[in-house]
Amino acid sequence: MALLEVRNVTAGYGDTEILRDVSMKVGEGEMVTIIGPNGAGKSTVMKTIFGLLHPREGSVHFSGEDISSLQPYQIVERGMCYVPQVSNIFTDLTVSENLEMGAFLAKKADIAARKERIYEYFPRLKERRHQRAGKMSGGERQMVAMGSALMLNPKLVLMDEPSAGLSPKMVGVIFEQIEKINKAGPAILIVEQNAQLSLQLSDRGYVLASGENRFEGTGQGLLKDPEVGRLYLGG
C-alpha cells in the first residue's frame, strides 16, 4: 500500500479546471519529484493533496485513509506537512519561535529535543536561533520553513519549489539537507524548477503538462528519456 495515493483527481479554482484525471503515488520513505512547465498544475496538485483544495472528481488517500474532504489541520494531525513556496515562515518571530510554532501538536516536553534534531540538520539555524526570521537570507528562511515542518516528525513532507530564488550555491545546500532528511525517514513529494537536480536525488518522478499526467518513471529513467529531456529538461 502506498503512503500517499492520488487517484484520478480533477480539481481547480472556481469555474477553471486545472487538473484532469491526475494520478500519482508516494511510497514509505520515497522521494518523488513533480516537474512540468509553468501552468502545468504542479502547485495545484500539492494544494489538493494538503486539503487547501478538494477534488471535484477522484480522491486522495494517505496511509490508507481517504483524506479528500479533510481540512489541512486534520491532514497535519495524520502525519503530513506542507512547505509552500511563499509565506512559509513567521517573519516577526525568531528562528526558535518559528520552530516552536511548527510543533503546535507536540507535547511541550518534547519540543526542546525536536529543536535540537532540527539544528543537527541545519547548524546555521542554531547559530541564528535568536534572530528574527524576517532578517535572514532566502536560503536561511527556507531552512526555517523546512525545520518548522519537520518539528512534528511527519511521515510525508510536501515541498513546493524549495530552491526558488536561491543562489546556485544555496540550492546545493538546501538539496543536500533534503536528501539527508529523506534518508532519515520521512517521504518527500517535491515540486521543483531545478528538475535535473531534483530527479537525480529522487526515487521516482512525474511530469505534468496542461494539468494531466504526461510521463512517469524513476528519477534516472526520466533524466535519460530523450523526449522528457527535449521538452522539459532543456536537453
Rank of each mutant, 00 (worst) to 15 (best):
residue 1 M to F: 08
residue 2 A to C: 00
residue 3 L to P: 01
residue 5 E to L: 00
residue 6 V to G: 01
residue 7 R to W: 04
residue 7 R to G: 01
residue 7 R to H: 03
residue 8 N to E: 15
residue 8 N to H: 13
residue 11 A to N: 00
residue 14 G to I: 08
residue 15 D to V: 15
residue 19 L to K: 00
residue 21 D to Y: 00
residue 21 D to E: 04
residue 23 S to M: 08
residue 27 G to K: 13
residue 28 E to M: 13
residue 29 G to T: 10
residue 31 M to Q: 04
residue 36 G to T: 09
residue 38 N to G: 14
residue 41 G to A: 05
residue 43 S to M: 07
residue 44 T to N: 05
residue 44 T to G: 02
residue 46 M to R: 00
residue 46 M to P: 02
residue 48 T to E: 03
residue 48 T to K: 03
residue 49 I to A: 04
residue 50 F to R: 00
residue 51 G to W: 01
residue 53 L to I: 13
residue 58 G to A: 02
residue 64 G to C: 10
residue 66 D to H: 02
residue 69 S to Q: 05
residue 69 S to L: 05
residue 70 L to K: 10
residue 70 L to Y: 04
residue 73 Y to F: 14
residue 76 V to W: 06
residue 76 V to C: 10
residue 77 E to H: 15
residue 81 C to D: 12
residue 81 C to S: 13
residue 82 Y to E: 08
residue 84 P to V: 08
residue 85 Q to E: 11
residue 88 N to S: 08
residue 90 F to M: 00
residue 91 T to Q: 13
residue 94 T to A: 07
residue 97 E to W: 09
residue 99 L to W: 07
residue 108 K to D: 14
residue 108 K to F: 12
residue 110 D to W: 06
residue 117 R to G: 10
residue 118 I to D: 12
residue 119 Y to Q: 06
residue 120 E to F: 15
residue 120 E to I: 11
residue 122 F to G: 15
residue 123 P to T: 15
residue 125 L to G: 13
residue 125 L to Y: 13
residue 126 K to P: 00
residue 127 E to F: 11
residue 127 E to T: 14
residue 128 R to K: 15
residue 128 R to A: 04
residue 131 Q to L: 12
residue 133 A to R: 06
residue 133 A to W: 08
residue 134 G to N: 07
residue 135 K to T: 13
residue 135 K to S: 10
residue 142 Q to M: 10
residue 143 M to C: 10
residue 144 V to R: 12
residue 145 A to K: 06
residue 151 M to F: 11
residue 152 L to Y: 14
residue 155 K to S: 03
residue 156 L to K: 12
residue 162 P to L: 11
residue 166 L to K: 01
residue 169 K to S: 01
residue 170 M to C: 13
residue 180 K to G: 09
residue 182 N to L: 11
residue 184 A to G: 09
residue 188 I to M: 07
residue 193 Q to P: 00
residue 195 A to F: 09
residue 196 Q to Y: 15
residue 196 Q to S: 10
residue 198 S to E: 04
residue 198 S to Y: 13
residue 199 L to E: 09
residue 200 Q to M: 14
residue 203 D to T: 06
residue 205 G to D: 05
residue 207 V to L: 04
residue 209 A to R: 12
residue 210 S to T: 14
residue 210 S to G: 07
residue 211 G to C: 06
residue 211 G to Y: 05
residue 211 G to H: 02
residue 213 N to H: 03
residue 214 R to G: 03
residue 217 G to S: 04
residue 218 T to H: 09
residue 220 Q to S: 03
residue 224 K to R: 09
residue 224 K to S: 08
residue 226 P to Y: 07
residue 226 P to I: 06
residue 231 L to W: 01
residue 235 G to I: 15
